[in-house]
Design a protein around this nucleic acid. Structure first.
Lengths: 243, 243
DNA sequence: TTTATAAATGTAAAAAAAACACTTATAGGA
DNA sequence: TCCTATAAGTGTTTTTTTTACATTTATAAA
């Protein structure tokens, strides 16, 4: 039934102006970055359908008639994680003719940022999903490696110009964790004092009277990101977040 | 005939793995920036077909089976300008359900950079096309205004980090023209001496023994962009172009 | 009480960016 | 041919930002 409607809509509906044009399948694929207070991770799944069944892959899905691409990406992510409040951003659209040997498919890549620990999703919803350390991720199907490369580059750029990191951290975090995150994303060591000075000069963190005692004997103060303050700054004086 | 083949391929071919998925029309729309040595421009057309016939629009076209998106964008641009060596970059994919009242269409926006004068295209190939000063562009159909906004922001970012400007200038140009271009893109006045010092410190221009006498009595030295040197620098020492 | 460990802290030097004004070459007009 | 008007060309100082760098402190565990 559904298919009949589809054919009729696409080829026979007199309200359509573009009847002679080729149609394509449009997919979304999500590069899901996570952070566990130590290392940057990526969430991958083992494909359980053909083609390329059994190989590692990004999670993806096809765009449906009744949703836009952002909504499709949210849906796809919810299917995997059970979460629907995940930070998502569109990156690039991939269209090589034979990129998917199954059928001509164009794919819109999104990247997502998740705090691995504090979003304790109800167990990942697909058994074969696995968090890989970003440096230890396996080869992926199709052009998914290329997508991941681009997403990493984008993440790096955004980390330098937006307070993107706070999507990847628990609500309360230590300076060391924030620095670990930036070091993972930028893939280089940073000087501790300079980093703290820089962050403090941005004036968008609130230092709590609370310490995380789980790592050191002295304990480390916890901070929260002051989103309102950040947004007010951006609005009022075109504040530029720049690390 | 062609349509028969299409239906059969999409719905009946046993090599297709994704038969039950919805298909969509995929378009490309091009934000064509130009520069005439004075001002940043945008090339728009008056649509000569429904819907929204007669309104100003970006130039666009539908993706075909035998091409990828970059190729589609090149084809669309060639149709309009007769040129096929234009700098193009994908920006974003737009998918709001009712963005095109004609039919559900997803559109991939590209931006293009053209030197208005020295690419003297054989007259623009579509009569209704017109170069608008970027600040005087008319309202556009669908979500094209949004696309232009994003393209402008992207152009700004890229101008600060890549020698993008040289796509928009004639081969030989004066420092004043380069500064005009940057001022147009960044939408602010720059100090002449600081600008020249900055550009010279990048060391990617060749100063010619030739002057442009068309603007001042004194004449202004002409420069060319040393693309090889630029690329060698990027490769060898990760040279960062930053204005 | 001692010890081991990560946290917390500030300053000086170097580099980059911004502010700033006068001289020069030439065409065109007097 | 001399004068004038106009944009081109040129450096230095100040300010801001970035980088480099080492010691003390709080606490839990031994």
């Amino acid at each position: 039934m559904e298919e009949d409607v589809e054919v009729s809509e696409n080829l026979n509906n007199h309200l359509n102006y573009y009847q002679k044009e080729d149609q394509v399948l449009l997919a979304v694929d999500c590069i899901i970055f996570g952070f566990d207070k130590e290392n940057l991770k990526i969430l991958l799944i083992k494909r359980n359908f053909e083609p390329e069944k059994g190989k590692w892959s990004l999670i993806g899905g096809f765009l449906k008639k009744n949703e836009n691409l952002d909504e499709a990406a949210v849906r796809v992510l919810e299917t995997l994680t059970g979460l629907n409040d995940i930070y998502l951003e569109q990156i690039h659209t991939y269209s090589k003719i034979d990129r998917d040997p199954g059928q001509r498919t164009i794919s819109v890549a999104y990247y997502a940022l998740i705090d691995v620990d504090s979003h304790h999703f109800d167990g990942i919803q697909i058994d074969s999903a696995h968090w890989f350390d970003i440096s230890e991720a396996p080869e992926l199907i199709f052009d998914h490696n290329e997508m991941v490369q681009k997403a990493k580059a984008r993440l790096k750029r955004r980390a330098l110009s937006k307070p993107i990191g706070f999507e990847l951290l628990p609500e309360k975090f230590t300076m060391r964790q924030l620095q670990n995150l930036y070091e993972s994303i930028l893939d280089k060591k940073l000087d501790k004092r300079n980093f703290i000075n820089k962050i403090n000069s941005l004036d968008v963190l609130i230092k709590l009277d609370e310490k995380d005692m789980s790592v050191s004997r002295k304990g480390a103060y916890l901070y929260v990101f002051d989103k309102d303050k950040y947004e007010k700054k951006v609005e009022e004086d075109g504040f530029i977040f720049k690390i």
